[in-house]
Every structure is written in C-alpha cells, then in structure tokens.
Design a protein around this nucleic acid. Structure first.
Lengths: 158, 158
DNA sequence: CCGTCAAAGTTCAAGCTTGAAGTAAATGCG
DNA sequence: CGCATTTACTTCAAGCTTGAACTTTGACGG
C-alpha cells in the first residue's frame, strides 16, 4: 500500500504543527483555570454545563456522551465522581426505566453559574479575542470539517 | 470583578464548540492509528520524530520539551519508557555535561521511518484533505494566534 | 571563596483515561 | 415461547499525566 506516501507540503506541515501545538496547550490552559478556581476539569465543566442547558437539567448518559464527544466509559467514571461531590444525581429515566439519566442538583447548578463567567473569559482570552470575525468563522468551518472526517473514519466498519 | 461577563455571540459559541469537539476527538483518532500500527502514542511519535529531525538525531531534554510543548516532567517519564524500549538513549551533553540529551537509536530511527507514512496519511485523512488551501492557511494562522495567546497568559507572572 | 539562587532533570503519589470484559434489560427471530 | 443479539451502562486493571518535592549542578553577588 505505501508506495510513495503523499508527504505534507510546507504549508500543510506548518498548519498541522500549529494545530498540534494548540491541541497540546489549550486544554491544559483551560483545565488550569477551572481547576484553580472551581476544582473542575474542562471535561467536568462540559458535563455540568451540558446538563444545565438541557430541559429538566437532566439528560440520558448516552445522549450526554454524544453531546460532549466522550466515550460512555469515561462519562460514567466522571459522573460517578461528580455524584460523589453532590453536583448531580443518577436516576432511572421515568419514561423508560432501563435508561439512566444524570440530573443536575442545586449545588451543581450553582457551581455552573459560578464557573461560567471565568470559563468564558478564558475562552475569550485564549481563543476568540485574538481572532478577527473572519477567522472565527474559518475556525468554525475548519473544526466542523475535521470533526466530521474523524467521525466518518470511525463509523464505516461496514 | 465579574460585573457583566461578555458572553460569546452565537457565532463565537459555535466556533468554540466546534473547536472543543476537535480537541476531544482528533488526538484520540491519531493516537489510535499509531497505537494500533506501531504501539506509539502521538506524544511518543512527536518525541521520536523531533529527535529524528535534529542534528545528530539528538536534543537536550528541555529543548525537546519546548519543541513539543510538553512539561519536562511528562517528557522525562516518556523518555524513560522509550529508553526501556530501546528507541532512544539518555546521555550527558558532550558540550556541557550538566545537561542531558536524548539520542535516537537505530531502532528508534527505523520505527520513525516505518511509522511516518501511516501517521502522515492519518493527518491528511483527518485534517488536511478535507480543507481548501485557504482553509489550511487560515488554520495555521488561527492556531498560531491561539497558541501565542496561551503562551502569553502563561508567561507574565511579572 | 561562600552562600544563595536558579536551571535541568527525576521521582513519586494521586488522580484520570482507556479498552476490555461484565451485567442487565429489551428486542428480534425462528 | 425461548434463544441470541443489541443497547446502555458499569467496573476494573493497566497505563498515563500532573504537580509538587527533591537532587544536582552551575551562576552570581558580596
């Protein structure tokens, strides 16, 4: 198969290396802010924030996993820890008791409300505020395209 | 301080959420390919590849850490494992014996050579080939800008 | 010189992620 | 009806990352 691999052009290589730097650095920076100020990882925040925006402040675990691009296994572990901290509860879905829902508690809601401003400020500082409007649009388009490619490659076992 | 936080506009929010998806998914996809085919993580690959391109196929640990945006602690752990696998050696810098260099072994070089085509193909498939030339350029500019913002925020303890 | 400081690495414990294997409930199928 | 499969989750062990603490070696100031 690998006859003559298509290497990256200089321009492509630069773009990939820049993206790689971003991937190595940005999550750490956002984690650090949330950990310092609220003892939450970025992933924790996405879980709580996802619930806070859902009707009834609750979602089925697999729905939530899809929303935040997580494996069920990882989500299950994190939800267990957040439950131990009293930020959410797990309970069977009333409509179909075979499913489990995560439900945000009052404490969980309060924490999201308290954490959101600092988190959004960090996202602005690190990402948005350094970019022009066109760049923000380009970032959205590029990121969607890439995520789509990754999903497609994962899907077609068949 | 948090009087009225500047929330994200719809457009900015979409861009950020798309980038967040990418950040959650792309590293896993690239890791998976390298792990499956060569038992390397993306981080391992960057270490070996960084060495392979350096003069003498060797670098000081702190230089390498800077190049691949890693903490020294993480790099030290990974280098220890790669050394145990015989892919590199640690030895004192001949020019200044107080520093340590990582030196790629023959086996390490062979592994990089073997792994590179598949890795580049994955980068193409997931990232580059789905984008127009303009988007590749935009990706580079945006990523550089974001990394720069993160670095600046980390620096100015002073 | 001597003491203090900083830089370069290493180590360790705590915690997180991962994939594989397990459970339990429903759904299809023969 | 009952057997096999699928879906939704949970658990566990193995491995990885992290930050803090530690060591060692030079650099600098007085």
């Amino acid at each position: 198969m690998p006859e003559e691999p298509r290497w990256l052009t200089e321009c492509e290589r630069e773009a990939w290396l820049a993206l790689a730097s971003l991937i190595f650095k940005l999550p750490g920076a956002l984690d650090a802010q949330l950990l310092r100020d609220h003892n939450l990882t970025l992933f924790d925040y996405f879980v709580l924030s996802g619930l806070s925006m859902a009707p009834g402040r609750s979602l089925r675990l697999s729905t939530l996993a899809g929303q935040i691009n997580s494996s069920l296994s990882r989500l299950s572990n994190v939800v267990k820890r957040l439950e131990q901290r009293g930020l959410l509860r797990r309970e069977p879905d009333p409509e179909n008791p075979r499913y489990n829902r995560a439900v945000l508690t009052e404490a969980g809601w309060d924490l999201v409300v308290a954490a959101a401003p600092g988190h959004v400020a960090a996202v602005r500082r690190f990402v948005i505020d350094g970019l022009t409007e066109e760049q923000v649009t380009a970032l959205r388009e590029v990121s969607c395209r890439v995520t789509q490619q990754v999903d497609e490659a994962a899907q077609p076992p068949q």
